[in-house]
């Protein structure tokens, strides 16, 4: 069950273009599973920025001097993330979490491949560790437009069987996109599960490749969220249910992790005509 806590910033570090915040958050690490996210209030009590911002939980520690702590990786996009990047040790933050449905892990030690775009690598670290503990082979592919926008290359290397890097400008690793190298990796390792986190376009391509190789895919989506806890209906996308019916589902509570083959990627931002309650059906 998610909790709302006042966290204290323990540390803010730069990592390429990103800021890594370590925050005390009693009650959240204890419940954490890879893929969960938190939302953070922006600007303090009187703030005119009233919507919380969502961040994947990167690392957690449930014990230690500070009790439970967690790390988030923040890429500066606009006002909210800029404010967060300016936090200092001892500042307090309003944190809600853990939120969302986590990644589903295979019962047995099957070969897995983890794909992260930009800060999308953040939730993959603890996932990789847990998969390794289950005896899975863990191949990792990290991609970004340029080297500075890769996150955690050295650290994730330690928990991956093999790490492949791609950058669009060729500043690090293979020049190109993660999807250029993914088919080869899946072919070579017989990957059974693909885990992906990154921009929607990347997720759509990864899901398509996974389907081609008959692998199971788990994609962490990023939709604009006003509440993060399931009460506002802003974060919806078209997902096919067990009954074969497409519904506009809330990515904050039913996701952010979805099976790649069930998301109607090409129709995100639309209401598919056959979705439950779509205007087209209303007329029939």
């Amino acid at each position: 069950m998610p909790v709302q806590v006042r966290g204290e910033v323990l540390d803010v570090r730069r990592a390429g273009v990103y800021y890594v915040l370590s925050i005390t958050a009693p009650g959240i690490p204890e419940q954490f599973r890879p893929g969960h996210f938190v939302t953070i209030g922006i600007g303090g009590e009187e703030s005119g920025l009233i919507l919380r911002r969502a961040f994947a939980i990167h690392q957690v520690q449930s014990r230690g001097v500070y009790g439970g702590t967690l790390d988030v990786v923040v890429g500066v996009q606009g006002k909210g993330t800029r404010w967060l990047s300016g936090r200092r040790r001892h500042d307090t933050l309003d944190i809600v979490g853990p939120l969302g449905k986590p990644f589903i892990l295979p019962k047995e030690g099957v070969p897995c491949v983890l794909v992260g775009g930009g800060y999308g690598s953040a939730p993959l670290f603890m996932l990789a560790e847990q998969l390794r503990e289950r005896g899975c082979r863990v191949d990792v592919v990290l991609g970004a437009s340029t080297e500075e926008k890769l996150y955690g290359v050295l650290d994730i290397k330690r928990v991956s069987s093999m790490l492949t890097i791609t950058t669009e400008d060729g500043s690090s690793g293979t020049k190109g996109r993660v999807t250029d190298v993914l088919p080869d990796i899946m072919e070579r390792n017989n990957s059974a599960v693909v885990y992906a986190c990154g921009p929607m376009g990347m997720l759509a391509s990864v899901a398509a490749i996974a389907a081609e190789y008959r692998a199971y895919s788990q994609c962490s989506v990023e939709e604009s969220m006003a509440c993060g806890i399931g009460i506002c209906m802003t974060c919806v996308l078209p997902v096919i249910g067990d009954d074969g019916i497409t519904r506009m589902v809330r990515s904050c509570v039913e996701g952010p992790i979805f099976r790649g083959d069930l998301v109607r990627w090409d129709e995100i931002g639309t209401i598919p005509a056959d979705a439950l309650g779509a205007p087209a059906l209303d007329l029939s």
């Binding site: 604009s224 802003t234 519904r247 979705a275 309650g277």
Partner: peptide, 12 residues
């Protein structure tokens, strides 16, 4: 049942 409008549905 009603699907609502397409996204983006909100803006700060």
């Amino acid at each position: 049942p009603r699907s609502g409008r397409p996204t983006p549905r909100m803006c700060e």
